[in-house]
């Protein structure tokens, strides 16, 4: 979660991320926050909590995911990305997107 050692991370990937506040900027300015997921309720079964906490879905699909523009506006927003092609399709403000199943089946090409 912390930003230590991330100052110089401009070389990892070269995709451009469309920040709703700052427009298209190199991905190195951002911090990836994982796919948009529903947090289990407090009374959810332990198994559900364990899955939520420790299992990263890492799906081959088009998904909404969290991005944080750490080097500029420092705002979180959502990006729709195809994890198979790494193509960034669009971005949205939090609240504009409902969580739910990602589009496209895992494993389809």
């Amino acid at each position: 979660m912390d930003d230590r050692g991330q100052q110089g991370r401009e070389d990892g990937v070269s995709v451009m991320i469309p920040c709703p506040h700052c427009e298209r900027r190199p991905a190195g300015e951002f911090h990836f926050g994982g796919p948009l997921r529903d947090r289990p309720g407090p009374e959810a079964p332990t198994g559900e909590w364990i899955a939520y906490t420790y299992d990263q879905p890492n799906l081959r699909s088009v998904q909404w995911e969290w991005w944080f523009h750490r080097a500029a506006c420092r705002q979180w927003f959502l990006v729709r990305r195809d994890t198979r092609t790494n193509q960034v399709l669009e971005s949205a403000m939090p609240g504009e997107v409902a969580t739910g199943m990602p589009e496209g089946e895992a494993g389809d090409e």
């Binding site: 979660m1 912390d2 911090h31 420092r74 609240g95």
Partner: peptide, 19 residues
Amino acid sequence: TGNADGVDSWFRWWLATRP
């Protein structure tokens, strides 16, 4: 000191999940 940006980002994320 070391986590100033990280905690800021962490809190902002939880705030973003609860507009």
